[in-house]
Design a protein around this nucleic acid. Structure first.
Lengths: 220, 220
DNA sequence: CAAGTAGTCAATCGAGTGCTTGAATAGAGC
DNA sequence: GCTCTATTCAAGCACTCGATTGACTACTTG
């Protein structure tokens, strides 16, 4: 099959990489990886969040494990899965970047969903950084509390969407409030901005997330 | 199927991303993308380089095109394909990073191939940058000349492996010569270092490549 | 317009994938 | 040891994918 030793090496190397890519080549698994990037979870919880059967979710996790993208540890009755490393999260962010840059359909889709009546363009990374620097905005993390606890953007306040109304007293009415969540395809921040605007706040959302920032910081 | 509108949105978004990942989930296509990241090429040339039939190569290119990863333009008799954008190259670099970080088998494989008798550890990015800064090393690009012409590392000298012996007069015998090529799975630089060492040079290789540097520079 | 070349398309086959269902396993608590 | 629960395994079905072959299209050149 392979004439030279260098071809044999290349074949093997690319075959391995293809295994990794294949593990990500499924909507269900991508969603699992994105969730695990926020915080570790058990199989049962994951299954509920991605609306799949437990057995099916378990199979997907096995595939991700085979590709070395996640690992699971027994914790009492449960098995808790987590990403194998931060590079995995960066890979997904890069994948989203490619999708956003080139996939016209996807782009139209996100616009269609996010740019509704009250919708405003999301704040990009540089603008957000500048306004944070200037003390001009308050940054809120609208993910569930346990995801905030597992890691969050510096300076952010936890205000889970499910309990948003109870946190209103923490939010300034004279400054812009910027909501962030898991990434460009997470709808929590859009919903939060919508609700806050209805309540009279100057609210925006941003695509920036914990891992998109870390991905960008690698080369700094 | 999808109960809420946000689920419908997520399903669609992840389905699109999965399409992109699926396009990369094949050794042949990964190799094509890596080659196109160096310089544009025609179908026939690509087919020769990856040792596949022209028809098969064409089909793979169609799939990559559908996923918006490459695009092709007619040029006289030929169709020349190129990457759709720089993010695509970054994605592959990130994929290699994940593979290198987690795939024990792959890692062992690369060591097995590169760390042969005369082999030395490749120079990592920071060390290379420091020694370049100090004017301590001469950097040579051992890829074919047309890939050098399409873009190369700053300060590098073109010394294609196929004509290495004719370029010896350009290389210093009193300083280290560092060879680079396409990326971590490209064997050209290893071969170059081997030959130069046999000729009495202080030769090393590095994994650093045009796109791995650019990928790291994004967040700077 | 005829001939020749680069590239694509279409049909086929075997192999692999995703999801379902029902059974099996591993550990916790009694 | 027995029982309960979270997770995994195994078998099955419909569907998709990768490579091959041979025919087809599009463009250039004469």
């Amino acid at each position: 099959m392979s004439a030279s030793p260098t071809r044999a090496f290349k074949d093997a190397a690319y075959a391995h990489l293809a295994e990794v890519a294949k593990a990500l080549a499924s909507p269900a698994r991508l969603e699992i990886v994105e969730l695990l990037a926020q915080a570790p979870r058990t199989v049962e919880v994951l299954a509920g969040e991605i609306h799949q059967s437990v057995a099916n979710t378990s199979q997907h996790l096995q595939q991700l494990k085979r590709a070395q993208l996640v690992r699971g540890e027994r914790e009492g009755l449960h098995v808790r899965y987590r990403l194998a490393g931060p590079e995995v999260a960066r890979l997904v962010v890069q994948l989203q970047a490619v999708g956003a840059a080139h996939h016209a359909a996807l782009d139209a889709l996100t616009r269609g969903f996010f740019d509704d009546p009250a919708g405003l363009e999301p704040l990009d990374r540089d603008t957000l950084a500048a306004r944070l620097e200037a003390g001009d905005v308050t940054l809120i993390d609208v993910r569930p509390a346990h995801e905030f606890a597992a890691g969050h953007l510096p300076g952010a306040i936890s205000a889970p969407l499910s309990a948003l109304e109870e946190q209103l007293h923490l939010l300034p009415r004279d400054r812009t409030v910027v909501a962030y969540c898991r990434g460009p395809f997470c709808t929590l921040s859009a919903e939060a901005a919508r609700r806050l605007r209805a309540l009279g706040f100057d609210a925006r959302r941003t695509d920036v997330s914990v891992h998109s920032l870390q991905a960008a910081a690698v080369g700094a």
